[in-house]
């Protein structure tokens, strides 16, 4: 059992490299190994300078996103056996600046995520004495899917609109905004609308649908964005066309 598999990993060292370049490694092939295991093997046995992020090894933390043969994937969720007899090309996620090797700079996403205030916004907090904020299973079902996001950024790497215009708020942040807008306990929809319903919000999306295709958690950001477009349009009609509308 001396089978090996070739990994081509994009390397970039800001101290010494002018630009990124590929480096090839031969890694033992194991049926049960994922690409993250192969990267760990390289770092432990072959080349300690290789830099990449990971934490949970179980598709929960969202830190190990990379491009594998051109497709955004979680390194811990992509089995070597699916690439057997070929070369596995591992690159940092598309559309983000490379900090070093496979590590990207995600400041842009973090800023966008906070801009949609992805937490419960409540106009008038209920006094503690009045008890919990109850929610029925039906109310939970409305947004549960969008709450599964692990901020892995695969959707940003898949989205050509984000690649072409980095001002775009992007799939995961918009999906999370939608998640809180749909929450029966939340009253922050109008506040979020300033970002969400702006030109660089949902209207920048042309429904390529790639975000939903690559999402490892079934979040379906494309659906969240289209639903937000529908509801933003309805709000606009209500505000400007109906007598007694808001604003």
């Amino acid at each position: 059992m001396n089978e090996t598999i070739a990994l081509e990993v994009l390397r970039y060292n800001p101290d010494t490299d002018r630009e990124p370049h590929f480096q090839r490694y031969a890694v033992p092939y194991r049926d049960e190994w994922v690409v993250l295991d192969a990267l760990t093997h390289i770092k432990d046995q072959l080349d300690a300078t290789l830099c990449f992020r990971w934490s949970c090894h179980m598709a929960v933390c969202g830190s190990c996103g990379v491009m594998i043969n051109g497709e955004p994937k979680l390194g811990c969720h992509a089995f070597l056996r699916d690439y057997r007899n070929g070369v596995v090309r591992v690159e940092p996620l598309d559309h983000f600046p490379i900090e070093r090797d496979l590590v990207i700079v995600m400041d842009d996403f973090m800023a966008k995520l906070s801009s949609v205030e992805p937490y419960l916004l409540v106009d008038a907090a209920k006094p503690l004495g009045e008890g919990e904020h109850l929610q029925t299973p039906a109310e939970l079902n409305l947004f549960k899917q969008y709450a599964q996001c692990i901020n892995c950024l695969l959707c940003y790497a898949a989205c050509p609109q984000y690649g072409l215009n980095e001002g775009f708020v992007g799939p995961a942040a918009l999906a999370l905004a939608h998640r809180y807008n749909l929450d029966s306990r939340d009253t922050g929809k109008d506040r979020r609308a300033e970002v969400v319903a702006s030109n660089e919000g949902v209207w920048e999306c042309s429904f390529v649908g790639a975000c939903s295709a690559v999402c490892p958690k079934g979040v379906d950001p494309a659906a969240a964005i289209q639903q937000t477009k529908v509801s933003a349009s309805l709000d606009w009609f209500k505000a400007f066309l109906l007598p007694g509308g808001r604003k």
Partner: peptide, 18 residues
Amino acid sequence: RPYLRKIERHWWLRHRRY
């Protein structure tokens, strides 16, 4: 010294869904 790779001109030929 973060390095930003340019999006290719023919990005949409890279995958069937594009």
